[in-house]
Simulated assay, not measured.
Amino acid sequence: MDDAEEPRTFAAVRRKLVDAEVAQWAPDVEPSKRRYSEYHRAIDAITEAGVDYAEEVGASLEWRDDRSIYGILEQGMSVLSDLRFAVRAGEYDKKDEEPLRLWSHRSQPLYDLKIKKTPSLARQDIEAVVGSYLRLPYRAQPIDRMLVDLLIALELYGYGNEILNPDYIKGLTPTPPLKQSAVLGWLTEIGGSLAVWVVIALLLWGLSAAHLFPTDWLLGANALLAVIFFVYAVWVSVQLPGAMLALRKRKQAILGLLTQMNSVYVELNSDGPISARHIEERAKRAADAGVVWPGPLFALLDDINRRDGRF
């Protein structure tokens, strides 16, 4: 690199790197429009924190130096570049209509789930990104907020899709709990036992016609089958109210977890500062109820609490 072309201040280096990083993903977008994108705002925030750290440790302006401002800023930008891919799971073979999209708070996640329009998120990749972020020597409050929001949304959308929009083949794979009906199960049991009775009765009739079963026993055998069917039908019917209640409780428990997640996520919908301690407590209560949050969530909240406790 020609020394005459090298920026001579940290701010100039930062601006050069930010513009280059954002431009590579959206070369056809006007620079003025890039600056209002989610990706640009995030890169701007992380590099601003990087410059503060560089000034604190006395970093060098020489790009070949081990303590170069270039290396310091590129660490943070690399984290967000990885995140950009992680929030596009399964979209690599599609034309990216929003190349500078990153992540922002979703206002109606339950409605998104209802209409089956949910973000494509790679859980393992996102968790790895958070780990990389926590290994940086500096932090940025807007990135803290974005990652906390994303980690909670990750479980909310993942669990919501699993229970509300399950992939199953009716009649061939097990019916998901929320799609089950105790009455339908009762009818299936009754219908199945009736079908067995009819098949056995026809078999006995056929054997009798072929002189392989005593005709005198045919009426008694059918009567015995009728008694067995009746007893079984009564037994299944007696169990029906209990089965209905148990299924109802199971559905309430499943939906209750989704409600718990959503209630935590809704609290992130604020333009003002949010207490990391409060979100941590709310998330822990949900975890006690059975919610399985992404592992890095509490590590990130703990890290924020060790700083100013807000994001």
Rank of each mutant, 00 (worst) to 15 (best):
R8L: 11
R14W: 10
R14I: 06
D19Q: 13
A23D: 13
S32P: 00
A42Q: 02
I43V: 12
A49Q: 00
D52E: 12
A54R: 06
G58I: 06
W63N: 00
D65L: 03
D66W: 04
S68Q: 02
I72Q: 10
Q75P: 03
Q75W: 06
G76P: 03
G76V: 07
S78F: 03
L83T: 09
A86Q: 05
V87W: 04
V87I: 06
R88V: 13
D93Y: 10
K94G: 05
K95R: 15
E97M: 14
E98P: 02
E98L: 13
L100G: 07
S104A: 13
H105E: 05
R106Q: 15
R106D: 14
Q108W: 01
P109K: 10
I115A: 07
T118V: 15
P119L: 12
L121R: 07
G131F: 11
L136A: 10
L136I: 08
I143P: 00
R145G: 12
M146T: 11
V148N: 08
I152N: 08
I152G: 08
Y157W: 09
G158R: 02
G160N: 05
P166M: 01
Y168N: 01
T175G: 07
P176R: 05
L178R: 03
Q180I: 00
W186D: 02
T188G: 12
S193Q: 14
S193R: 13
L194I: 05
A195Y: 06
V196I: 11
W197M: 07
I200R: 09
L212G: 10
L212Q: 04
G220I: 06
A226T: 13
A226G: 15
A233L: 00
V238I: 15
R250N: 11
Q252P: 07
L257F: 12
N262E: 11
N262I: 09
N262L: 07
S263V: 08
V266I: 15
D271Y: 08
D271C: 02
G272P: 00
R277W: 12
E280S: 14
A283E: 10
A283D: 09
K284C: 01
R285A: 15
V292S: 14
P294R: 15
L301P: 08
D302W: 09
R307K: 15
